[in-house]
Amino acid sequence: MNFRATGIISSRLLSLLALLAGLNCHSVFAKTPVIDIEIKDHLFHPSEIVIPANTKVKLVINNLDPTPEEFESYELNREKVINGSRKAVIFIGPLSPGEYPFFGEFYPKTAQGKVIVE
C-alpha cells in the first residue's frame, strides 16, 4: 500500500470517527421527548399525538383501567401488553412525516388512536 492510499484511508477513518463521536454526543445530550398517554374506559387520552419527524420519542402509557390492554400498531411495528393500573414505556421513531394509527388489541372497537408525525 503506498503512502497516498494510507493517507486517504486514515483521513476517511478520522472523518468516520468524527461522525461517530458526533452521533454519540447527539444521543447523549439530546433528550428523548416524552409523551404521556392515558388509557381510561378502554379509550386512549389523547387519542391523537403529534411528534416531530426524524426524532425518537418515548411513549409513557398509563393504564388507569383495572384490565390489561395491548398497545398495537402495524404501521409503527409496535406491540406491547400494558397491565391493568400500571404504566408501560414504548419507544417509537425516528419516523417520516405521516399518520400512524394504533389501537388497543384487547378492546379494538374503542381503543383507537394515531401518531401524527410532522
Binding site: K56, K58, Y74, N77, I90, F91, I92, G93, P94
Partner: peptide
C-alpha cells in the same frame, strides 16, 4: 423488533414499504 421497541437497538428506517398492496392487518 422487541429490542428496538425497548431502545436497546437503535431504530432504523424501514427497508421497504408494502403496506399499500399487502397491509399487515
Amino acid at each position: 423488533l422487541q429490542l428496538t421497541q425497548a431502545d436497546w437497538i437503535p431504530s432504523s428506517r424501514s427497508f421497504w414499504d408494502t403496506s399499500h398492496w399487502l397491509p399487515e392487518g
